[in-house]
């Protein structure tokens, strides 16, 4: 008999090393392009480090001074981090409240065997579409449509609803409203589809037995659907919040980065973005990032719990 090939012998036939080999690319890239920059961000937050004209100031170690600055009243009379956090929160709520109400309603419509909605695929396709639209272009579109000489004002004037064009982009309430509207349009379809999947995941017999027990649809909703849907609802809700914290493209483009009027639509990320612009204020930007990180980490902990629980 022919002898077994000697060269094929390895030290062991353990495949463990391949596990490491296969995950190397991910971790190398993660370390260089994400983790190291993140650590650098945190490091920066303790330094005075920015550009003033052509001069670079710093880096000088300043301890917690950057954070202190975020939390103290500035010359304009407000606490930056509080103001921008509130802005972000308000903008998120304006969009998220109708988003979740409508999405819940639609999810119930679509899954109702009694209503038996026709054309579901069409409706789902249409309401999900804005989610894929480039947010900056969508925002630009709203800017053009709602400008003083834009089609919306033209329409209102032709109807005689107003005599003078409305300055939508000059008023806090309308700017915030428009941002909320865009966020609503971009996200309610997505939320509908997720909640729908959640409802469909509930065992059909639950509903049937509740019906047989004599519950009406309201009772079924509050006693069966909602409690069983809760984990998914929480998951979707928190991911929406995390998304809200990252709100940037829409208000940035709509207000040209200025958060007009009077910085009432400047979000946290826009604030961060301003430090990264010409001034390259890595110190302050670092401090804002660290706070962002902490907020999202807390929220993510909840999400993490939902997805790892089996």
């Amino acid at each position: 008999m022919e002898k077994m090939k000697k060269l094929s012998k390895t030290k062991s036939i353990s495949y463990a090393k391949w596990g490491y080999i296969f995950i190397i690319p991910f971790f190398v890239v993660y370390l260089i392009f994400t983790l190291y920059p993140q650590l650098l961000t945190i490091y920066n937050s303790f330094f005075e480090y920015y550009r003033d004209g052509l001069n670079v100031i710093g880096p000088n170690f300043v301890g917690l001074r950057n954070y202190k600055e975020l939390f103290t009243i500035n010359n304009a009379g407000y606490v930056p981090i509080v103001k921008y956090s509130l802005n972000t929160l308000i903008l998120w709520i304006i969009g998220a409240v109708p988003q979740f109400l409508i999405a819940m309603l639609l999810a119930l419509f679509f899954t109702s065997t009694r209503l038996n909605i026709k054309g579901q695929q069409f409706f789902k396709t249409v309401i999900y579409m804005p989610n894929l639209i480039m947010a900056s272009a969508f925002s630009m579109l709203f800017f053009a449509l709602f400008s003083q000489v834009g089609p919306i004002n033209q329409l209102l004037q032709s109807w005689g609803a107003v005599n003078e064009p409305i300055n939508f982009l000059g008023m806090t309430i309308s700017v915030r409203g428009l941002i909320g509207l865009m966020n609503f349009l971009m996200w309610f379809g997505n939320t509908t589809i997720l909640l729908m999947a959640g409802i469909q995941g509930i065992d059909e017999s639950m509903f049937e037995s509740a019906r047989l027990d004599g519950s009406n649809s309201t009772q079924v909703f509050f006693n069966i659907t909602m409690p069983l849907l809760m984990p998914i609802f929480i998951y979707v809700f928190i991911t929406s919040m995390i998304g809200g914290i990252q709100m940037f493209d829409v208000p940035q483009v709509l207000t040209n980065g200025k958060g007009t009027p009077n910085l009432t639509s400047t979000t946290l990320i826009m604030y961060l973005n301003n430090f990264l612009g010409v001034s390259k204020n890595f110190g302050m930007a670092g401090a804002v990032s660290v706070l962002l990180f902490i907020i999202t980490a807390v929220l993510s902990a909840f999400v993490f719990k939902t997805i790892t629980r089996k």
Binding site: M4, T10, S14
Partner: peptide, 25 residues
């Protein structure tokens, strides 16, 4: 088959010690 490592002992196929030979060989 060579899908699990042998902790100790000897495995011969056709007279050859194959403890650390990969399955394909």
């Amino acid at each position: 088959a060579g899908l699990e490592e042998i902790t100790s002992g000897e495995l011969y196929i056709d007279g050859n010690l194959v403890n650390s030979v990969e399955p394909k060989d």
